[in-house]
Structures are given as C-alpha cells and as structure tokens.
Design a protein around this nucleic acid. Structure first.
Lengths: 234, 234
DNA sequence: TCAAAAGTGTTTATTCTACACCCATGG
DNA sequence: CCATGGGTGTAGAATAAACACTTTTGA
C-alpha cells in the first residue's frame, strides 16, 4: 500500500503570532505581504509546511526567517481549516505564538519583510482570518500566563520590577498594587536582584532583576499564580 | 490566480479521544481498526477531513459515526504532523477530545466498529502516535478541568456527590476530603439538589444532583477552582 | 529644594485545611 | 441491631487584599 486512495490533499501552512514588549506595551510583529493574493496588506508571518519538516520545525523556520532568532518560546495554539478561509485554495493553518525579546530581533531582516511592531489599540486590518488568530493568541497568552511564568520570555536579560509590572498590567489590561505585586513575584523565587540599577527611568534608579533560570526551568510547569482574579480569561 | 504553485499537498485527518465515566473510573473509547495499515490493531477513532467540512464539523461527524451522539463537548487539542508519523503517506492529524455521558452512546454502532471502553491502567498498545495523543488528551483534560467545570459533561443528568467526587479523584489520581469537596462544589452554585435519592449504592440512599445549566452556561469560562493544588498538571 | 519614581510593612478579610461524629436504612 | 455509606460544622493556618509614607537624586 503506497497511499490512502480517494482522499483529497490540502495545503498546510504555519502562521506565527509574534509577541514583543517594549517596556511599556505588548506588541505584535506584523508584515506587509509581498505576494498575491492580498499583496501589500497586513498579515502575520507564515509559510507552507515543507515535506521534510515537522510543524514545530516549520514554525521555528518561519520565525527565524523574519527575526533571525532561534531557540525562542514557541507554542502551538490551534489549527484553522474552514473550507473557504483562504480564497485561492483550501489551506489549513497551524497557528503558533512566539514570545521574543524585542531587543534581540534582527531589524534588518524584518525591514526586508516590511515588518513592524504594532500595539493592539492601533493594529491594522489583517487578511483572511488573521485577526481571529491574533485574538486567539492574545487570549491564550493571558490564559497561559495566568498559570505559568511565560511572560519573562518577553523581557530582556535584565529588567526592573516596574517593567515586569507594566508587562503584566498591559497583558491583563489592569493595574496592580506595586507592593503586593512585588511581594508576590519575589515570593516565587524566580528573580535574582542585581547590584546594578537602571538609571534611565528615574533619578534614584531602580534595581535590575534577572530571571533565575534554573528555578524557571524546574518550575515552569508548576502553577504560579501571579494574577489575583483570573476570571473571564477566555 | 487559481492555486499556490509549487507547494506540496497533504492529507489532513481528525482523531477523537473520547472520554467517558462509568461512575467509578475514567474510560477511553477505542476501536479495533477495520482497514489497512495496522488492521485489527487498537486506535482512537479518526477520519480524513472532507473537502466541504470544517475541522470542527469533521470531528463532530467522526464522533457521531462512532457514538450516534451530537452536540457533545468537543475541543480541539493539537495538531500532529511529523513527516513520518503515518507510514503510508504524510498525514496531519488534528486531535480533538470529546467528553460524553457513557450511558448515552449507541452500543450498537460502537460494536460495529469493534469499539470498547478501556481504563487507563490496562489500555492496549495503540498504532502510530495514538498513545501520545491519549497522553496529551489526559493532560489537557486535567489542565482544563482544574479551571473549568467541564467534567460535568461526563456525568448523567442526575448524579450523586459521591460519583462526582469519584470522577475528580480518578481524573487527578488523588483523594479528597468529602466534607471539603462537597462544600467547595456546592459553593459554585452549579448544582441543584434533587428530592430523589439514589438507593443503589447505600441503604440510606444519597441525594441526586443536577447541573444548574443556566449557571453552567454563564460561568463556564470563569475560573472555578475545584482542585486544591493544581501543580504538575502538564 | 522639589518633583518623580523607588522602595518597603502592617492590619484585616478571606479562603483553605484538617479533622470526627451522628444519621438513616436494609438486611 | 448492626454494618454501611451519607451527611454535616468548626477552629486554626495560610493567603490575599487594602492601604501611605519615606527615600533618593538630578535638574
């Protein structure tokens, strides 16, 4: 037996929702499409799965193409496959989301793709069902981050408590009491306080923290409740 | 433009992990495969996605074929697509899991498929990566059920507190204090106590409860923490 | 010297946990 | 009348929430 007879074959693509954080706001890396259909319209970065690669490999390849980054936090989200979601021909899209340190990506490559970082308030219209993908990714990010410390993936190696709090506040569109927030975060044992201070954001300066990578690796899948009221997340 | 040139096309299948609960233990509905390859070996129920149907529709169709049930809790889990996962030809599999009331399924149909309910301790070897799918589904069930009241989908219309507790204990492979468990469950407002008692399991009899469907529909996506220590779930 | 952000502690309310006895009934 | 499973309450511990003042320093 060489193949399954009588079955239709389809295209399979991978699309990546790429999140970044600029110290103030959560951002999305979008590209201006360079090919038909919908050339010059905004979309998320994607590509077809090649015969020799797995889905995870395809996602990593696509992410690398746009950002130059490897070994990035990448998680499969969902697969979309409505018969008419792509007007040219039926294409299944396996959606991934990626969390990257916005300072690390290759600006050169991303400008070749006409990519830019946009925030959620003023993001452009996207082709096909890409807006839905983004909504899905945002919900999933909230969900996952309410239980696991994944948001650290968005931060640079050294960051201040204020930046971390900004990140959580922006992801959840809320605000936290800084005393309670800092106490809760520190109680996880995930942070190591540095001697060095960030002097950019205030005269007094604020201490940098680094992620305790060992603790992070060990406790990644343990629930860590940083969000007080995780209702209505999905 | 009629199609995307130069891209390989693939098969896309949907596989359903079907959970049931017999009052004591969580079970899985498996079938003995009726076609090659791997004829007569155990697998989960699946099928290829047809040109006109969406993924959700394909999953519902496949579930209906085996159980006769419609309007069942069905959730997309993940998509597997390693190049060699199917020895015949490259096939992507979108994995769903279903939660059904074990009393409602059509025994006739399921016996046509050589299906049987197995518990996790003595489940047979499965073809391809189906064992992995089941593991994935079990983890996902724990994860989801730690936050949302989905396990009610597995129970008949009327059930006792003991049955509910058995279900949670079996899903999480642990045991709960019955006083704390019952208090916590009742505090959700999801249950309506019936006048009628179940007299099968004890001389005194125990009250039946029904799900408060209105409350359930409204609060489905609110977090409801029934599990005290949801660590190490994934 | 003052504006701006950093840093820190305590009290109260809520939630969680551990734990043991009486009840109702069919055989 | 007794064995079996059903049903219930409380006290102590842990966790979460609310809340405000002092420090530092560059301009």
């Amino acid at each position: 037996m060489k193949y399954y007879p009588g079955q239709k074959h389809y295209l399979v693509a991978v699309d990546c929702i790429i999140f970044g954080f600029d110290g103030e706001h959560l951002k999305l890396l979008l590209i201006k499409r360079g090919f038909e259909p919908k050339k010059d319209e905004w979309s998320v970065m994607g590509g077809f799965v090649q015969p020799s690669e797995s889905l995870d490999q395809a996602a990593a390849r696509i992410l690398h193409q746009l950002t130059g980054l490897s070994n990035v936090y990448l998680e499969q989200l969902q697969t979309l496959g409505d018969p008419d979601r792509d007007p040219i021909e039926r294409t299944f899209s396996v959606v991934y989301f990626a969390l990257i340190d916005i300072d690390k990506y290759e600006k050169q490559i991303s400008s070749d793709y006409n990519a830019s970082w946009v925030s959620f308030n003023n993001s452009p219209n996207l082709i096909f069902d890409h807006t839905y993908m983004v909504t899905l990714a945002r919900k999933s990010l909230r969900y996952k981050a309410s239980l696991h410390p994944i948001l650290f993936e968005l931060l640079p190696e050294k960051f201040t408590m204020r930046q971390l709090q900004n990140l959580y506040e922006d992801v959840y569109d809320t605000s936290f009491d800084k005393r309670n927030f800092s106490r809760k975060v520190l109680s996880t044992g995930l942070l190591i306080k540095q001697r060095e201070k960030d002097k950019l954001s205030s005269k007094r300066g604020s201490f940098y923290f680094k992620l305790n990578k060992k603790e992070y690796a060990t406790n990644f899948y343990a629930f860590i409740k940083l969000i007080p009221k995780p209702d209505d997340l999905i």
